[in-house]
């Protein structure tokens, strides 16, 4: 109970600050729209190779995961600014739970991600995407878990490095292989076998596949389970890391 209350206080504060700066909220919502409108049409000639009837049924799930991962990766930048203002330190001298300090911030990131996901799915539907409701729900839940994992990791990284100059290159180094090996933009099955093998080692590819299969209504174990397990595992790991950083001396 106390934990939820403390998380809520932190969440409410974060949300209030975000809403005071609606430009960022709008930019965040606009990005996936641009991807759908400007990149989606490029996939139309590939429908046969993708094995779907509408390119957006393929593309929207990938965009969801991308949104979850990459949007959340930047959550830490805000935390660095807060740390500089002394807010993190001030919160850490209160008796509030360290996990709540992180969780309140994660809730904010997840809420933002949820709104973006709804925009993305809604627009996808208008553009011709078709998916069963329970597939969409599972897909969004997986997206939120993936986003939560990235936001937690990003916050942990922010408190560890305390510098935008260090964080930006680190995120870029992580993001590039994730984007290229996860089949977010194009399916890995289009590539040669060595590339497919390499991508098998990228957890995010399995997450993307799980969301994609879930949108296709294919809930069989080998299509969805591995990606879901990866997502849950990464989420738990990242939250553990994030909490540890908030708890850690000297952070």
């Amino acid at each position: 109970m106390r934990f939820l209350r403390e998380s809520y206080i932190v969440f409410r504060r974060q949300l209030r600050m975000n809403l005071r700066n609606p430009a960022w909220v709008l930019i965040g919502a606009f990005q996936p729209v641009l991807y759908l409108l400007l990149f989606g049409p490029l996939l139309k000639p590939l429908i046969g190779a993708l094995g779907v009837e509408n390119e957006y049924t393929f593309f929207v799930p990938g965009m969801l995961v991308q949104l979850g991962l990459f949007g959340a990766f930047f959550a830490g930048f805000g935390l660095i600014a807060e740390w500089r203002d002394g807010v993190v330190e001030a919160e850490r001298v209160t008796p509030a739970s360290r996990t709540a300090l992180l969780m309140g911030r994660l809730w904010r990131d997840l809420l933002q991600l949820f709104v973006q996901a709804l925009i993305l799915v809604g627009l996808g539907y208008l553009l011709g995407m078709r998916a069963p409701l329970r597939g969409i729900v599972l897909g969004i839940v997986l997206t939120l878990l993936a986003g939560g994992a990235c936001a937690a990791a990003s916050n942990a990284l922010a408190l560890t490095t305390k510098s935008e100059d260090v964080m930006a290159p680190v995120i870029n180094v992580v993001m590039m292989p994730v984007l290229l090996l996860s089949g977010i933009l194009l399916p890995m099955s289009l590539g040669p076998s060595w590339l497919q093998t390499a991508s098998d080692y990228m957890p995010v590819k399995h997450m993307v596949n799980a969301v994609r299969n879930s949108f296709l209504g294919d809930f069989t174990v080998d299509k969805v389970l591995w990606g879901s397990l990866w997502t849950v595992a990464l989420f738990v790991l990242a939250v553990w890391w994030g909490t540890r950083t908030f708890r850690k001396e000297n952070a």
Binding site: R13, R20, G86, T94
Partner: peptide, 21 residues
């Protein structure tokens, strides 16, 4: 280093801080 977010409102920050206690 201070204790309040520079773009928050002073009163909100004070209330939130008290509530964390």
């Amino acid at each position: 280093s201070g204790a309040t977010g520079s773009v928050a409102r002073a009163g909100d920050e004070v209330i939130d801080h008290g509530m964390l206690y």
